[in-house]
């Protein structure tokens, strides 16, 4: 069965499709989250080196991964929107940004909570921490640029350009920070020297990663639906929805 992709490129039909998809992903997210947290807190054994504090990885690692994935996905959507002038792609990019920024902040926050008992300090200028912080700045730049522009078409395109420039820069920034860190003979402790994990810990972490994916998809779809409604509020189909009392 061939799916007619063009049909769902229209905000009106995507609005309905997203509405059907949200419950599915929400249920998956809650189910996986419950499973992941259960494994994380009750099944996984206490680490002999790090004690109970290691359990932060069940939140921290998925958040850090999501923060990076979401930036790339956001830039992809923004690029598609810029190249093909599809409104929905740009709306997706706008919808992804707050979730990405949230995960970046969460990764930094849980990282510093873990750093205090492990390293004895809330923050070290480690290469990973620094580049994660810069990623947060990039998200904030993207969102504040879009927020400052009143015309949505211009906001989409301007945001797309800055997202693409950011995506070219991310590897450069990442390697710069890494080399800078080794030059400075920085933190004596490193995140990279984590002990190899027991398989049950890995399972718990992977479940949490999938839970984060499902959560992101559900929240982003929800947000893109709001954006669609906001931008299409003058159209006939939104008026139709309102008349039916579906809003």
């Amino acid at each position: 069965m061939a799916i007619n992709w063009y049909k769902y490129a229209s905000p009106a039909s995507f609005y309905a499709l997203a509405g059907k998809m949200i419950p599915f992903f929400t249920v998956l997210a809650i189910g996986l989250l419950a499973t992941g947290l259960y494994i994380g807190f009750f099944v996984a054994p206490t680490d002999f080196q790090q004690g109970e504090a290691y359990r932060i990885i069940f939140i921290h690692v998925p958040a850090a991964w999501m923060s990076m994935f979401l930036y790339v996905i956001m830039a992809c959507w923004a690029g598609i929107g810029l190249a093909f002038n599809t409104r929905l792609s740009s709306m997706m990019a706008t919808a992804i940004a707050p979730t990405g920024a949230m995960f970046t902040f969460l990764a930094l926050w849980t990282g510093s909570l873990w750093g205090k008992p492990m390293w004895g300090t809330w923050w070290v200028w480690d290469a990973r921490l620094t580049s994660e912080l810069i990623l947060l700045f990039l998200y904030i730049g993207f969102m504040s640029l879009q927020a400052a522009i009143d015309d949505p078409r211009r906001a989409d395109k301007a945001g797309a350009i800055i997202a693409l420039v950011g995506v070219i820069n991310i590897p450069i920034i990442y390697f710069s920070v890494q080399w800078w860190n080794t030059l400075h003979q920085g933190a004596s402790v490193s995140v990279t020297q984590a002990p190899t994990m027991a398989s049950i810990m890995l399972t718990g972490m992977m479940v949490m990663v999938f839970a984060s994916w499902m959560y992101s998809i559900a929240v982003i779809l929800k947000r893109v639906r709001s954006i669609i409604l906001e931008r299409e509020r003058h159209t006939v189909w939104v008026a139709e929805l309102r008349r039916k009392g579906a809003l």
Binding site: I140, G141, S144, I162, V165, G166
Partner: peptide
Amino acid sequence: LLVLPLYI
């Protein structure tokens, strides 16, 4: 906000 992270 836009430019300083890219200057790093």
